[in-house]
Amino acid sequence: MEGTNFAWKLNEFVAGSLPRGRAGPRSGVEEVLIRLIRWFDPLRRRKKEFSVRAFRRGDEVAIVDLCIAAQRRYGGHIPRSVSFWTWSILKRPGISPADILLVEAEEGIVGYGAVKGDGMVLDWAIDPSLTPQEQGRAADLLARALEERAAARGAETFTVSCVSAEDPASRALLEAGYRTDEAESMTVAVLDPPGLIAAILRARTGPKWGSPESRILLQLAPGGYRVNPSPRIGITWSDELAVTEADDEFRPTFVIDTDLSSLTDLIFARVAVGSLLEAGRVSVEPEAARPSGLEFLQLLVLRSPWHIPPADIQ
């Protein structure tokens, strides 16, 4: 609390230097001055203290909350819950509580990692609410502790998967001499296009898209794949969203022609709608409805980058 004391003393000094009788409530200028003094107080910017310890019963909820916070911006992973974490990490053969390490700060658990005997970190999270410098320090500390644990179990290498290359933890580890390696990526095939489109559109918040009643017919050309989805999908989107297989009675406002692979590219691989249009992989009829069609397709594109923790795969 040295920094706070120093600021308090400065506060007293400022207050004491003011004319007598005015040591009570401060004016706006004085308030700004005090805040400036506190802001520049070098002792206030002392390093946050971190310590590392092994997992104890009762840490489960804090670990899961930390993972959820660290992965909030990302998709592509299994959402963390206590039951999933318990099965995936704690009950995993070859993992003991000593292989699960936590970084603690004053405010609680700010870092977590679980390492296998071969040096592969299965799960890893650093509190994103820490400053970038603090995240880097916490990551470095946690990595060193996990490395020691892995080395004690006879591992030859240590591997950790971070959410992205721009992540402060990744940057800190690269500076510490780590080398990048190819990470896991997914392949996705759509089994139920109407169900997927409905799920994505329902998740879109904000003002409803389209005219009072938009009726879109999405026609999927046969691609010769082993999956044979219904070729005509009717999307009615006004107050209520309805995505169904369209029969001949369906009267669309406009028609989008594409194929399953292009639709999957658009949604998951984030291939630009314009590129698909240029390549003839998507078309909208009538011509006048093209802007609406493209706007609709753009809504289907997933917005989060994907992060795949090794625990989800291994």
Binding site: Y74, G76, E147, T157, F158, T159, V160, S161, C162, V163, S164, A165, D167, S170, L173, L174, G177, Y178, R179, T180, D181, E182, A183, E184, S185, M186, T187, V188, F268, A269, P305, W306, H307, I308, P309
Partner: peptide, 10 residues
């Protein structure tokens, strides 16, 4: 689907 995950090894 490329992931943003970066794997670091030592």
């Amino acid at each position: 689907v490329p992931s943003s995950t970066v794997r670091l090894r030592r």
